[in-house]
Each structure stands twice: as C-alpha cells, then as structure tokens.
C-alpha cells in the first residue's frame, strides 16, 4: 500500500500558496470590473475574455493541481480546450462572413 500512498499524495502545497492564488484571482476580478467602466466598445469583450482566461489558468494550475499532476493530464486538458477553441474558430468562419 505504500506505493499506492505515494501515488496519491503529490506535493504538499502550503496553505499560503492557495491564499496567494485567491488574492490574485480577487484582484483580477477587480481589474476586470474596473476595465469595464472604460469605454472600450467591442474591445471590452476581448479584454474581459483575456482576463477571465488568466483567472481560469490560475484555478486550473493551482486549485486543480494540474501543475503537480503528470504531463498526460495536461495533454488531456489541451485536447479538450483545443477542441473547443477550434470549434469556436471554425464556427466564426460562418458568422464573420455572413
């Protein structure tokens, strides 16, 4: 059972690391709300999505431990997000040119 145990308990991440990530997430939320008051027209949605993506990566890497999992997990994620991205892009090929 020892080896099973070692399979399960990866890095013990210090509590304060989680809190630091949380602080970063909260401040990014503040930034995205703040930016929304600037009059950016259609760029607003792009900025919002970029900030959201950064937040998303933080959550995935630290809260969801992907940084400490083996590489195959990253590949699984890349496949999923990549497919979504490609679906989105290819659908744009219709709507942009309508």
């Amino acid at each position: 059972m020892d080896s099973t145990h070692s399979a399960d308990s990866h890095h013990l991440i210090p509590y304060r690391a989680y809190v630091a990530v949380w602080l970063a997430l909260v401040s990014l939320t503040g930034v995205t709300v703040g930016v929304s008051y600037l009059d950016l027209k259609h760029a607003a949605i792009l900025v919002a999505v970029v900030i959201a993506t950064v937040k998303c990566v933080l959550v995935i890497l630290y809260f969801m431990h992907i940084r400490y999992e083996r590489p195959v997990f990253t590949w699984i994620l890349v496949t999923g997000f990549g497919s979504f991205g490609i679906f989105l892009l290819l659908t744009f090929a219709d709507y942009f040119y309508r």
Binding site: S83, I86, F87, L90, D94, Y95, Y97, R98
Partner: peptide
C-alpha cells in the same frame, strides 16, 4: 471533427 459544416453546404451559411 473539423468538417461538420459540409452538411450545411446549402443551409445559407457564409460562402467562405
């Protein structure tokens, strides 16, 4: 997974 819209060749989607 990238070829789905050939089912919609006459559907009124954009030419490109």
């Amino acid at each position: 997974s990238l070829v789905w819209a050939h089912h919609m060749n006459t559907s009124g989607m954009a030419n490109w």
